[in-house]
């Protein structure tokens, strides 16, 4: 419960206001020639980083923006941009 996130539009807000959209895995792969295994890897497999992870979050109870946040999965806290190596 302790998560707070910084929405690019609304600023620092309570984590309850956001919906998690998964790790930032990059744009969708091309459909042409995509094998089931490749598709599955994109849609369902996650690296589950223990550390700083780039993630998509949606400010569902606010402006509705999808944005990328940096979260340390070990402390469940947002990490400021400059702290990311």
């Amino acid at each position: 419960m302790a998560l707070s996130l910084t929405c690019p539009i609304c600023g620092l807000r309570n984590g309850y206001e956001f919906r998690f959209g998964g790790a930032d895995k990059g744009p969708r792969p091309l459909e042409e020639g995509l094998t089931p295994a490749q598709w599955c890897a994109y849609a369902h497999l996650n690296t589950c980083v223990a550390g700083v992870q780039l993630e998509w979050w949606n400010h569902k109870d606010g402006c509705g923006t999808w944005f990328v946040a940096r979260r340390d999965t070990r402390s469940n806290r947002e990490v400021p941009k400059e702290d990311v190596q």
Binding site: R19, G21, R28, W56, N58, K60, G64, T65, W66
Partner: peptide
């Protein structure tokens, strides 16, 4: 939200 997510 669905539209925006899939065009993010």
């Amino acid at each position: 939200e669905w539209f925006r997510y899939h065009t993010r």
